[in-house]
Computed example of a mutant assay.
Amino acid sequence: MTVNEGPRALPQTVLRAATDRRLLDETIRQGRTTRAELADVTGYSRPTVSEAVRRLVEGGLLDATGLKETGRRGRIGTFYELGARAGWVLALELDQSGVRARAADLAGRTLDEHRRPAGAPGDVAALVANVRAAVGAFPDGPGPLRAVGISIANPVHPVTHEVVPLAGTPFPEGLISPREMIGDLVPAPILVDNDVNLAALAEHRAGRAAGEASFAYVYVGAGLGVGLSIGDQLIRGAHGLAGEIGYLPGAAAPTLAGDLAAGGLGRSDAPSNDVAAALELLDRADESALRVLAAAVARAIVSVAAVADPALVLLGGPVGTHPALLPRVRAAISFPGPTRVEHGTLGTEAALHGALHLALDHALAAAVAV
C-alpha cells in the first residue's frame, strides 16, 4: 500500500537563500536599515535575521555602516547597507541604432554609460567591434561583475537562449550570438533576450504596466513586435517567436511590415522601417504616414486583443512613443471589447532597463545561493 507522505519540506539551503534574498532586497529598498527593522518588516525572528545578516556581511553583500541609538537603555542598533564591494552588473542593448551599455551596482544605480554608433546595415564585423568596444570601455566596478544582460532586436529561443534567425529580419547583423561576441571579455553569466520582451519586463517592473496582471507592449521602430504578459508571465512561445507581429498578414502587402514599406516607411538599404523618416513625417503630422502607421498598429492590437484580451496595451519604441500616433491608433481600433491603449513610461530606454532587470535578477539570486 502506498502512503501519501504529503508535500516535502524545502531543503535548508533553499530556505536560507530565500531568507537572505528577502533581507538583501529589503535593505536595498530601504537604503539603510537595522536587524531589528528587518525583523519587523519581514516577520522573520530576530535570531533568523541576525544569522542571515551575518552571512550577507561575510559574503560582502552588506556592510555595517554605523550605530543607531534605539532610545532604550543599553540598546544600540547597527545600520547595514549594500556592501561597497557587493558587485555590479552590465546591461547592453543591440539594435539598428547602435550599441548602448550601462553599468549599475546591485541596487540598480547607474555607475557609467557608453554608446557606440551603428555600422552599415548587415555589417556583422562592425557590430561585433562596437559591442566589444562598449564592454571594454568600463573600468572595474565595485566588486565582481556578477551578470551581463543583453537586449537584442531579434527573437531569442526560450530554451537555448540563442538568437533565432528569421528571413527578412530588420536586424540581420544581429543574428550572431552575443556570447560569441564578448564571452572572452566578461567573467560572468551572459543573459540574452529579445528587446520587446525586455521592454515589456521593464514596464511591468517599474513602468505603466506595474500591477497589471495582463498587458501587451507594442513596439514600433525599425521593426514591429509585441511583448505579451499574461498572469505575470511573459509569453515567448515554443521557439521564441511569440509577438513577431511584423509577419502578420497585411492589408495591401503579404505582411504587416510590408504594408509599412509599401506606404513609404521602409528603408531602401535594409529590410526595416526608416525610423528617422517616420519620425520626421510624424513631426509634421503627415496624413498619409499617420494613416499607414495607425492602421498597421491597430491591426496588430486587434489581433492580440482577439486572442488574449489584455487589460492594457502600451505603445513603445522610437516611433510608437511619438505623441501624434497614439490618438490615431485609438481611433483606428475596431474591437468589440474595451481596449485601453497608452504610452509606456520608460520611453526608448525600456529595453535597456529590461536588460538591467534581467542582469540584476540573476546577480542577486546567484549571490545569495553561494
Rank of each mutant, 00 (worst) to 15 (best):
L346A: 07
R291D: 15
A305I: 01
A199L: 09
A331Q: 14
L145W: 06
L281P: 01
I245A: 11
A324L: 05
P11H: 07
A366C: 00
E349L: 13
V313H: 08
I176Y: 00
G149Y: 05
Y80W: 11
A202R: 08
P121R: 07
L15M: 13
S268A: 15
D286C: 06
L282P: 08
P323W: 12
A213P: 02
G122R: 03
H322R: 12
D112W: 11
R75G: 00
P327L: 06
A277C: 05
S45F: 01
S268V: 14
P310H: 08
A242E: 12
A120K: 13
R54Q: 13
G141R: 06
F335H: 15
A129K: 10
P178M: 04
A200G: 10
A285D: 15
P121V: 04
I182H: 05
D25T: 12
D361I: 09
A350W: 08
V3H: 13
T78S: 13
D105N: 15
P172R: 04
H343L: 15
I152A: 08
G316N: 09
D259V: 05
P318Q: 12
A86G: 05
I235F: 08
P271V: 10
A253P: 03
P254G: 06
G246N: 03
V302Y: 01
G266W: 03
G243N: 09
M1I: 12
A366P: 00
G250Q: 09
G6A: 11
N197A: 10
A126L: 07
V220I: 12
T19A: 06
A306P: 00
I76F: 06
S288M: 02
D112M: 13
A118V: 02
N154V: 15
G317Y: 07
S288F: 04
R179F: 04
A257V: 00
Y44M: 14
A17L: 08
P249D: 11
G122M: 09
D195N: 13
F138G: 05
L56Y: 09
A270S: 13
